[in-house]
Structure formats: C-alpha cells, structure tokens
Nucleic acid binder design. Sequence first.
DNA 1: TTGACATGATACCTTTGGGTATCACACAAA
DNA 2: TTTGTGTGATACCCAAAGGTATCATGTCAA
Lengths: 108, 108
Amino acid sequence: MTALTQDCFRALADPTRREILSLLSRQDMTIAQVAGHFDMTRAAVKKHLTVLEQAGLIQTHAEGRERINSFAPQGLRPAVDWLGHFDAFWDDRLTALKSAIEQDQTDA
Amino acid sequence: MTALTQDCFRALADPTRREILSLLSRQDMTIAQVAGHFDMTRAAVKKHLTVLEQAGLIQTHAEGRERINSFAPQGLRPAVDWLGHFDAFWDDRLTALKSAIEQDQTDA
DNA sequence: TTGACATGATACCTTTGGGTATCACACAAA
DNA sequence: TTTGTGTGATACCCAAAGGTATCATGTCAA
C-alpha cells in the first residue's frame, strides 16, 4: 500500500536526485541546465528527472522546444508524513519549533 | 560531504527496512523476532539490520546469546533536516503544528 | 527547405542490492 | 561436556539501478 511512499523514498535515495531537487527548488531549469551542474551525460540526468517526475517530486511543461522542470514540493509529503510517525521520539525539533512560534507571538 | 544523509536515505529506501524501523519503534526485538514478521530468511533480515545500524537508525546490545535491536530515533535526523530545507514550500504542515501548539496554549 | 539545437528513447554495460544457502561460532541448559 | 538454539559471516545468484553511446524526433531560425 501507498506506493507513493516507496516511490518518494526511492527517488530521494540517490544523491544526484536530491541535489537536482535542491537546484530546482531555487529555480526552474531545462534538462540541459540541470545537466550542466553534473559530471554526467544529459541522458543520465534525464533518467533521474524521469524518476523524480514519476515520484511526483517535479513537474514539467514544454515551452517551445525546451522542457521546463520545476520542483513539486507536495511530492515530499509521503516522506514527511512517514517520518511524522516518529515525531514523539525526538521532541527537540518540536520543542525548538514551539519556542520559535512562542517567540513569534511575543513579538506580535 | 554528510555521508550521514546518504546512509540515512539509502537505508529508508527499502520498504522492509522502513517496516523494521516501525516495528522496533514500538518494541525492542531480537533478530529472530524481527525475522518472524517477514517472509524471508533470517540472514536477509540480518543484512537489513546491518544497513540500519550503519546508518545509525538502530542500536544493538548483546544480552546473553541474544542480540537486542532497538530503534535509534536520532538516526532519522539527517533525513528530517534535509527535508527541513524545503519547509518554506508547504506551510500547511507548519501551520497545522502551529495551530496545535496555540490550541495547547489556550488550554493551559 | 535546410541546418542547428534541445530533447526523447533505446540498447547495452557494469555495479549495487536484496535474497538464499551454508557453515562457523557463542552461550544456555541438561 | 554435550546438545540445542541464537547469531555472525561468507559465497553465490539474480534483478535492479546508474551510467554511456547512439539514434530518432521536433522546433526555431535563416
């Protein structure tokens, strides 16, 4: 069940793909632009982009003869949600966030 | 850089390993006990446990001739931290948490 | 139309990964 | 000590994954 979770984690398991996501989160890019950041062929990058797209982590749309790849943050939800099951185990993150919010309220 | 992040995501990429983590988060177990939950040999489970341990996701200690495996939540931090870089993209989770905390404060 | 460029797709190679089978070892109990 | 059980480790098998090379397609510009 939830093939989405599997696809998501599998996509995130490769360092190149995580880096691609990081790049696309800052700026939309064509395949050539993405490939320019790595020491591998455009075909290899294309494969990674395909994996990311099928996992719902990026979206693409044609623009003339170019193909724009953009980050799809909601694709990370399955991973975030799965990790959320363990929230009770590391209260520090929660605590830090709570502090930040309380601080924010004090400011307001 | 940060081999921890790579080890963590690689360990989480396998559904069996995620399930093992889920089991161990509820109860410490010997290898035999873990293996009892899966349709594979004890040796295969042992391999998964080794991957999880090297990623810092579980800890083990001998107890007689048994070996107890326990969940190490802090091992998930690299993944959580990496995902945290994208926090700005899906404010809903943050918002929900903020609401929960505010509710908590109202109660207090 | 023709040429140049950005991309898609496929075949192929090599390494990694998940799995089994098997043997060796340590410890508890009789 | 002997026996049985829980575990570690290795060799081996097969499928999947990451990569390159190569060719086909589509679009912009002259």
